[in-house]
Structures are given as structure tokens and as C-alpha cells.
Amino acid sequence: MYDAPRSGSEPRTARSPLRLRRWLAGVFLPVFAVAAALFAYGATRSGPGDSPSSTVLAALAGICAALALATAVDLLVVARRLRAGRGRSA
């Protein structure tokens, strides 16, 4: 594993705030999932002359779905790290 040279300003035992990451992922996973579903629903209900167009709504649905997937993966990574005991002092 690559160890970057220390700049001297960070503590030697610095840790990632895993519990904060878990809380944020837990809050935003349902937000992104609901937003993706609502944008997808709006894309299916959008007509030819509507603004925003169904293409824009579908793109927003895809972006929200990708963010929900990334948030779910982060939630799994954080849970694995907390189980391994890396977040005891966070």
C-alpha cells in the first residue's frame, strides 16, 4: 500500500469520520432513490411540448440513480470498516 509523505499538519492517527459518513449515506440514499423514481415517473408522463422534456427528466433520473448506487456502496464500505473495528475512535 502506498503511504503518502506526511505534510506535518495532520495527526499520525487521523481517522475517517465513519459514523458521520454512515449517517449521511443513510439520509441521502432514500433521498436519491425517491428523486430517481419521481424523475423517472415524470419522464414517462411528459408530453412532446412539455418543459422540461422527457429526455432531461430521464437524464436526471439516471443521475439520481447513479448517486443512490454510489451512496449504497459507500454505506456498505462504511459498515464493513466499522465491523472491522477501524471506527472505534471516530
Score class of each variant (00 low, 15 high):
Arg80Val: 15
Ala70Cys: 07
Asp74Val: 03
Ser16Pro: 02
Arg81Lys: 09
Ser54Lys: 14
Gly26Trp: 12
Ala72Arg: 14
Ala14Leu: 15
Ala70Glu: 15
Arg15Asp: 03
Asp50Cys: 02
Leu29Ser: 10
Gly85Ala: 07
Ala33Tyr: 01
Ser7Pro: 01
Tyr2Asn: 07
Leu69Glu: 14
Pro52Glu: 04
Arg81Tyr: 03
Arg83Trp: 08
Val78Glu: 08
Ala66Phe: 09
Ala4Thr: 02
Tyr2Ile: 02
Tyr41Trp: 13
Ala4His: 08
Thr44Met: 10
Ala25Gln: 05
Ala66Trp: 11
Ala61Ser: 15
Ala90Ser: 09
Ser51Phe: 13
Leu20Ser: 03
Phe28Gln: 13
Ala36Arg: 01
Leu60Cys: 06
Val34Phe: 07
Ala33Asp: 03
Arg80Ile: 06
Ala33Gly: 15
Ser53Arg: 07
Val34Leu: 15
Val56Thr: 14
Arg21Cys: 14
Arg83His: 04
Leu24Tyr: 08
Val78Lys: 01
Leu29Cys: 05
Phe32Gln: 09
Val73Asp: 11
Gly8Asn: 04
Ala37Tyr: 07
Val27Ile: 14
Ala33Leu: 05
Ala36Leu: 04
Val34Glu: 15
Ala72Asp: 11
Ala35Asp: 11
Ala90Asp: 09
Ala25Glu: 03
Ala65Tyr: 02
Arg12Trp: 06
Pro5Ile: 03
Ala4Val: 00
Asp3Leu: 11
Val27Gly: 02
Thr55Arg: 11
Phe32Gly: 04
Ala61Thr: 02
Pro30Asp: 06
Ser54Cys: 06
Leu76His: 08
Ala35Ser: 13
